[in-house]
């Protein structure tokens, strides 16, 4: 792509990535969640890949596959964490442990360390969506040889 596109992408892609990370991280407090934040971050990856050409991204395919598997396995494992009660039981909520702070009732801005398994599941699904959609765009871009225009 042209130098204008590259410069704008270089400036704006870190901001999009940071916003995606924010949406994933605060998924249990503000609108959004793993899927939405992952989609936003994957769009930043697609912007970078399209504007800088796909040739230099060829090596990232294997880490993306690993991240996708890791996200899916972590999600299912977090679901199995509550198998003592039921599948997908939120055992960490309000337990005092990891992400287990009690929630103040009523409308309030919320605390980051609440939510039990929800933030962990948000991260798992977010990783999975980033890796999955990013590898789809990467595979489509690498298909049929490199023609960097």
């Amino acid at each position: 792509m042209t130098v204008v596109v590259r410069t704008v992408a270089r400036i704006i892609a870190p901001m999009i990535l940071a916003f995606g990370g924010y949406v994933i991280m605060h998924g249990h407090l503000t609108p959004g969640g793993g899927f939405q934040g992952g989609a936003v971050a994957a769009s930043a990856l697609a912007l970078l890949a399209i504007s800088f050409g796909f040739g230099r991204w060829k090596g990232i395919k294997a880490p993306l596959s690993f991240l996708e598997d890791l996200g899916a396995l972590a999600f299912v494992a977090l679901g199995f964490l509550g198998i003592g009660y039921t599948f997908f039981r939120n055992v960490l909520a309000a337990s005092g442990g990891l992400f287990g702070a009690p929630v103040p009732p009523g409308p309030n801005p919320g605390l980051l360390e609440t939510g039990g398994t929800l933030p962990l599941m948000n991260w798992a699904v977010g990783l999975k969506v980033i890796a999955g959609l990013g590898s789809v765009v990467l595979l489509l871009g690498l298909f049929g040889g490199e023609d960097d225009r």
Partner: peptide, 26 residues
């Protein structure tokens, strides 16, 4: 529905456009 709005902006406006542009380029 800000949840759906973020998902639509990410998937519909950005990623689908990227995939279509790649397909048209090929």
């Amino acid at each position: 529905a800000p949840d759906v709005a973020i998902a639509e902006a990410g998937i519909g406006a950005a990623l689908t456009t990227a995939i279509y542009v790649l397909a048209i380029r090929k």
